[in-house]
Simulated assay, not measured.
Amino acid sequence: MKIGDKVRMLHGNEEGTIRKVSGSRVEIEIEDGFLIPAMKNELVVIHSSEKTFFEESTKTVPENNEESNQDSDQAPLIAMIPQNDQEMILHLVNPSLGSFLVHVEAEKEGLVKTLFANQLPKKQWAQLDRFKLKDLSSWPILNVLILPIHESFENKGPIISSTLKFKAKVFSKSTVEIPLLKQKGYLFEIFREEKELDIHSLNAELNEWNPTATQQVKPPSSRVDLHIEELVEKPDELSNSEMLRIQLETFEQNLNQAISSGLDEITFVHGIGNGVLRKEIHKRLSEIKNIKYFKDTQKDRWGYGATLVRIS
């Protein structure tokens, strides 16, 4: 195994790309961008032809060609899903029965950044980027180019070129369930006329979604233990990525509660371990403006397995 190999867990559903190799251990970057540790003997390399082989071997021809015509007018969608009261995650979703070549780039002040340039198969989605809600007025423009993939001779589909501007009146007035993701968010059909958003409606809905904005918030404990044994009853039944997700959700929930309630400082006990949780916590803390500082703390008790956060 080497850096860049696509691998799958033998005892779980996770797939990802090897980013670091150290003896018999590796670090894998999974779909959400998290790095998780694993032993080499727990992994299997995914051959490049595996997906094609299984798709071809399980493909069936629909009777009367009904399936090939279903959802023929659909195209990939852009979705914004609230992560918390401060951040939204941008997704590209293809709920149709056709595959597409998609290029998405963010444009800001004359500069561009490619967010996605690849094939998007049917019934698949991809996470593109994260945006801070407080920076809504300076969000980049999205330039989207979509080309349908024709696997046989059929009517030529349209090439879609569209621009999305996330300004004061771009989002819908209420959230909807995003296809495939099964989460509430804001949905944009790329090839249709853009709807303008009432920013006041967006803020009102986010306030309703986040009770801390409308009522007195009770401060959390000044010490939050993120060891997975303290958070769930049966940690042995969880995969590494599921554990990390639960720990980070608990961290963000308590941090938001601490900020909203006016708490001066809070300590997160994450342990030493392989350092993945500590690294992700420090990364997120560095992106929040109303954090005065944070540091490793209390070596005698937790062996520098804790982080003190000072809130401004």
Results as ranks from 00 to 15, higher is better:
residue 27 E to P: 00
residue 27 E to K: 14
residue 27 E to H: 09
residue 28 I to R: 01
residue 28 I to M: 05
residue 29 E to S: 12
residue 29 E to M: 14
residue 30 I to C: 06
residue 30 I to N: 06
residue 31 E to M: 04
residue 31 E to T: 09
residue 31 E to R: 09
residue 31 E to Q: 09
residue 32 D to S: 15
residue 33 G to P: 02
residue 33 G to D: 05
residue 34 F to C: 10
residue 34 F to G: 06
residue 35 L to A: 02
residue 36 I to K: 01
residue 37 P to V: 07
residue 37 P to Q: 06
residue 39 M to I: 04
residue 40 K to F: 04
residue 42 E to A: 14
residue 45 V to K: 10
residue 47 H to M: 08
residue 48 S to H: 13
residue 48 S to D: 15
residue 49 S to K: 07
residue 50 E to Q: 15
residue 51 K to L: 11
residue 51 K to V: 09
residue 52 T to K: 13
residue 54 F to R: 11
residue 56 E to W: 01
residue 57 S to M: 10
residue 57 S to Q: 07
residue 58 T to Y: 06
residue 59 K to F: 08
residue 60 T to V: 15
residue 60 T to F: 05
residue 60 T to A: 11
residue 61 V to Q: 14
residue 61 V to R: 14
residue 62 P to G: 13
residue 63 E to M: 13
residue 64 N to D: 15
residue 65 N to S: 13
residue 65 N to V: 06
residue 65 N to Y: 12
residue 65 N to H: 12
residue 65 N to W: 08
residue 66 E to P: 00
residue 66 E to K: 09
residue 67 E to M: 14
residue 67 E to F: 12
residue 68 S to W: 07
residue 70 Q to W: 07
residue 71 D to N: 14
residue 72 S to H: 10
residue 74 Q to V: 06
residue 74 Q to D: 13
residue 75 A to Q: 07
residue 75 A to G: 04
residue 75 A to V: 13
residue 77 L to M: 13
residue 77 L to I: 09
residue 78 I to H: 01
residue 79 A to S: 09
residue 82 P to Y: 05
residue 82 P to E: 07
residue 83 Q to P: 00
residue 84 N to E: 06
residue 84 N to V: 08
residue 84 N to F: 04
residue 87 E to H: 01
residue 87 E to G: 00
residue 88 M to E: 08
residue 88 M to A: 12
residue 88 M to Y: 03
residue 88 M to I: 14
residue 90 L to M: 05
residue 90 L to Y: 03
residue 91 H to P: 00
residue 92 L to H: 04
residue 92 L to G: 04
residue 92 L to T: 05
residue 93 V to R: 02
residue 94 N to H: 06
residue 95 P to R: 08
residue 95 P to A: 10
residue 95 P to S: 12
residue 96 S to K: 03
residue 96 S to L: 04
residue 97 L to C: 05
residue 97 L to M: 08
residue 97 L to Q: 12
residue 97 L to A: 10
